[in-house]
Amino acid sequence: MAAEKSSRLLQAFKSRKILQFGLALSCVLLFAGIFGPSLLVDRGPNQISQSILAPPSADALFGTDELGRSVLTQIVYGVRTSLVVGLAAAATAMTLGVVMGAISGYFGGRVDTFVSRITETFQVMPTFVLAALVVAMAGTGMLKVIFIIAILAWPQSARVMRAQVMKMKSMEFVDALRCLGIAEHKILWREILPNAIPPVIPVGTLVIGQAILLEASLAFFGLTSPEVASWGRLLTSGQQYFYFAWWLTVFPGLAIVITVLTFNLVGDALNQAFNPRSGDA
């Protein structure tokens, strides 16, 4: 099943140009995030200049903001923030979701009911409102933001994991393992988990995109720390000056869209490879 899936994934990769494109683009982003800032040696993100609110020119490809800082430079520095938040939040959410989903799906009974209730409760919470509330009251900070996003996103992967584990726990090879005297927890973590994880991975990719959007939203509304370069914050300045400086709004926004779209494309293609749904030829 899973060995077939690996070859299916490879097949999907070869045939779907979108997946290749998406992965290539995410590599570019990763590169920009890691090496970008050091390539812009001559300009730091906070380097003020005389040309305030200047439109895009040869000198400043994306224009400058109200303090004369290059928008392009700030965008490049923002890549790092978005990627860190996105990947960290997704990784945390996935880990939490996989563990909870596995336990809930395998042991069933009251544990399952309890975890399902918690999952439902979190699903109901309006994400942005709650995140904004928490950050407003408990204070800003990248760790807090990552944590809050992870807490709100884990139910998604838990649900998929639970369904997978439930499907597998009544399979015959699991009974055969029990007949060998192998302990329940070993069966869950060593035998079932590796087989159940593949369909959960696309969910992780989608969470990355959601995390980046949420971070941008929080930043836009002034709920992240000002020292950290963030595309959302650029858009806040954009809001102030949209009468005269459209570039403050357009370019950072495009950066967000392209980044999130990349991850969504990869996630969508992975989803089609792992979970062939009706309607996807």
């Binding site: 099943m1 899973a2 060995a3 077939e4 399979m171 015959e172 090879f173 055969a176 590796p194 087989n195």
Partner: peptide, 9 residues
């Protein structure tokens, strides 16, 4: 015999 008889991995 079925697809579930053995751990596929």
């Amino acid at each position: 015999d079925s697809s579930a008889t053995f751990n596929p991995r």
